[in-house]
Simulated scan of single mutants.
Amino acid sequence: MNVGFIGTGTMGSLLIEAFIASGALSPTEVAISNRTFAKAQALANRYSGMRAEFTNAGAAAGCDIIFLCVKPLEFKSAVDDIKSVIKPQQIVVSITSPVLISHLEGELNCKVAKVIPSITNYVWSGASLCIYGQSIQEEDKEQLEALLSHISEPLRIDESYTRIVSDLSSCGPAFISFLLEQFVDAAVEETGIGRDEALRVASAMLLGTGMLLTEGGLTPAQIQERVAVPGGITAKALNLLRSETEGVFAELIRTTHAKFNEDLAKVSIAFTGEEVNGQ
């Protein structure tokens, strides 16, 4: 399998490194390009056999799957770059949520998909959220998901839920890390415990909690019920959290959706000259 990556920024390089480290791809199967060629070349220099191309078309030509890992407002330009070399049997994958399947299908004569990765994929964990266009066949979906399964759990979703599942899967690690950081900071400030020690304990707790929710089969409510003895310390603290955070996550979701709709409108104008409200 030959796979191209257009864009070697934070998420593009993460995917490349995760696929190679997991054994899903060998460096000789990977072609890459970046707006700044030196960055692509620097990444390729780390992996013998990886091919850094001067152009996006060069990275896309002849590949079975091409991942488009560029920012929303750079998408139309990247698509224009590869349009002349794309063949009907190739699969082009956007990893950018405001770029709709219809945007790509309107420009490219090939099979189209959208995958929302997560930073957790770097450690071969978490989900990859998969959305498919009309021309892609079941065997194509299975091929792409087989690749993604080396670093994640591929989950098929409806495009109308792109933003909210991205909040949970892709943005979620940043949100949870922020809350954990606040917890650790407070522990250090209030008690004098060493930061490294507090972070080590809290990180192990977070990992264990995740395992309870997945392998352990518990729900968040069940974990709270089992930990919080009525009238006890945890129960009192949970009441404080409920009071202080009421409405916070609803506002968080409204914020991410507003930014998504802003980006979607800009991307739609770039592709079609018209805004798209929602999906």
Rank of each mutant, 00 (worst) to 15 (best):
K76C: 11
T28V: 13
G9E: 05
D64T: 13
T36K: 04
P27A: 08
N34V: 01
R35A: 00
L15V: 10
I20Q: 08
P27I: 13
T36C: 01
I32K: 05
I66A: 07
M50L: 15
S48A: 14
T36V: 08
A57M: 06
A44F: 11
G23E: 08
N45M: 12
E29W: 09
A60H: 01
I6D: 00
A42W: 07
Y47I: 10
S22F: 06
N34F: 01
F19Q: 04
A38W: 08
I66C: 12
K39A: 08
F37R: 04
I66R: 09
K71D: 09
S33M: 09
K39E: 11
Q41S: 14
I16S: 05
F67M: 09
I32C: 02
T55F: 07
Y47T: 09
E29C: 09
A61T: 13
A52H: 03
T28Q: 15
S33I: 05
V30Y: 02
D64Q: 11
R46C: 10
G9T: 06
D64F: 04
V30T: 12
I32N: 00
T36G: 03
T28I: 12
T28M: 06
I6C: 04
A40R: 04
A40V: 06
A57K: 09
G9W: 00
P27Y: 10
T8S: 01
A78R: 00
S48H: 13
M11K: 04
T55V: 14
S33A: 14
M11Y: 05
C69A: 15
C63E: 12
C63G: 01
T10A: 12
D64W: 02
G23C: 05
G58A: 11
V79R: 00
T36W: 00
V30G: 00
F67E: 02
L14Q: 02
P72W: 12
I16W: 03
E74D: 15
F67Y: 13
T55E: 05
V70K: 04
S33N: 10
G49V: 11
V30R: 01
A59C: 08
G7H: 07
I32E: 01
E17Q: 15
A42H: 12
P27C: 11
V70S: 01
A24N: 08
F37N: 01
A21E: 14
P27K: 06
A38G: 05
A61P: 01
R46A: 14
F54K: 14
S33W: 02
R35P: 00
A59N: 06
S33R: 05
Q41L: 12
T55Y: 03
D64N: 15
S13K: 03
G12I: 06
S26R: 14
M50G: 11
K39H: 15
G12L: 00
E29Q: 15
V70F: 13
L68Q: 10
L43E: 11
M50Q: 05
K39G: 08
N56A: 07
G23D: 04
M50E: 11
